[in-house]
Design a protein around this nucleic acid. Structure first.
Lengths: 238, 238
DNA sequence: CGTAGTATTGAAACGGATCAATATCTGTGG
DNA sequence: CCACAGATATTGATCCGTTTCAATACTACG
């Protein structure tokens, strides 16, 4: 993903910051800004299962996913694990509070991330209002994504949630890959944790969708969308 | 709420932007920045039930709540109404996509808001990196609040969700008001829509909490916290 | 004081969680 | 390349809590 940009420094993927300017097209950083960020950033490669950082640990940096897929999750007092988000190329992560990370972030596939020390980033943002604006856009984008998620969780039926999850994944596909085959780098338990369901419920919902001829599996870790219209209808029917 | 600042222009309430700078204390705008915003802003008073803007309508401005309480909601295809957030003094709202608002915002109590034209705000932010940083902080704060909400919605039990809702409301109390009496400006249906429950379930959960001696009602629209410890324990037990 | 909207209560049914068992996949070493 | 072991995924049966529908109580406001 974003292969063309791999050697040009960090990129930020974000929808237009429409609260503040609706004429702004899909925002990618300018070469100068990428260079600016790159000079601060360390490029790190993570093996599947490797942790980028852990919940409650001291937070000193923020990250940008360059390639691969990761998950951000929280372990709740009850022992349950809630998956807060899945991270793909262009995603920004490293949210903290009181100087500590709020989630644990772990690589699902081999992933490459830029690690940017917080203090230094602040300094650059203060100087470069344009770049800061990019970050603002990006965060707003995250905000919308989270709103969408809370709508997902409001879904009464498990199959509706799964359908919504699939349409969501589709949006994260790199532009050059076929739109109807979705790789599922995460486990069923991860999906369940993300959707607020039990793994069993996810299994059954997926089975339902297969039975209805809406999707098909090519071996557990890959879904083919057979009837996009119906997936979208299921997803929208909240 | 925020009565002291009413005549000094808009204020923004936001937690520290810890991703980027952990030494930053509770951020209120400087007088200069308030003035800067005020020169762009229109101060509007809304009666209870009045709409600030409607879902899908053309978005040209963003808003800051100055006083009062409002709700932001979306009507879903199914006819259900999902309440996305409740807005209090210091809250920023007006999220849009493709030039249209995503939610409808409606006043619950008599409310005062600052209306700031988007284009002009963009221009000011580009010039004033400091102010832009405030907005970034604020949006990050919203992001955290939304994460919290999605945890709430993961709550299995209705009483747990209600407990979490109460602890959430408590955080929005003005500093000078007693901590253990919470006004509930919103209807049960609004609460239900926010928590992803039916109004009946909210009623029953509230009844449970009353029976357990954890809270008490002073006539429908006001709750007294009798045992904060237990409320918090219920809320945390996800 | 009456009416309309809101809130509560009650009874029934649905859907997901849970527990338990089986099947499938993945990676390892023979 | 195959066999094996551990983890992951699916399937089945039961239980519990929330939804739903219906009826009653409450509250605010004219």
């Amino acid at each position: 993903m974003n292969r063309l940009l791999v050697h040009e420094g960090p990129t930020l993927r974000a929808a237009p910051f429409e609260e503040l300017g609706n004429k702004v097209a899909m925002r990618l950083l300018t070469p100068r800004q990428r260079h600016e960020l790159e000079s601060l950033a360390t490029r790190i490669t993570y093996k599947p299962g490797a942790a980028v950082y852990r919940e409650h640990s001291q937070s000193t940096a923020i990250f940008i996913c360059e390639d691969g897929a990761l998950k951000a999750f929280r372990d709740l007092p009850s022992g349950k694990r809630r998956v807060m988000s899945f991270l793909f190329a262009g995603d920004l992560f490293g949210l903290s509070e009181h100087g500590r990370y709020l989630n644990t972030v772990q690589a699902l596939t081999k992933s490459v991330c830029f690690c940017i020390p917080r203090e230094q980033l602040v300094a650059v943002l203060r100087r470069d209002s344009e770049l800061e604006f990019h970050f603002l856009c990006k965060v707003i984008h995250e905000l919308r994504a989270l709103q969408l998620r809370s709508i997902i969780m409001g879904h009464r039926s498990a199959s509706g949630r799964v359908a919504m999850f699939l349409t969501m994944l589709e949006k994260h596909l790199p532009d050059d890959s076929p739109r109807h085959v979705l790789p599922l780098p995460m486990s069923r338990a991860d999906i369940a944790g993300y959707l607020g369901l039990s793994p069993e419920a996810v299994s059954r919902a997926a089975k339902e969708l297969v039975a209805a001829g809406v999707i098909a599996f090519s071996g557990g870790k890959e879904v083919r969308i057979l009837d996009r219209k119906r997936v979208e209808r299921l997803a929208a029917d909240v």
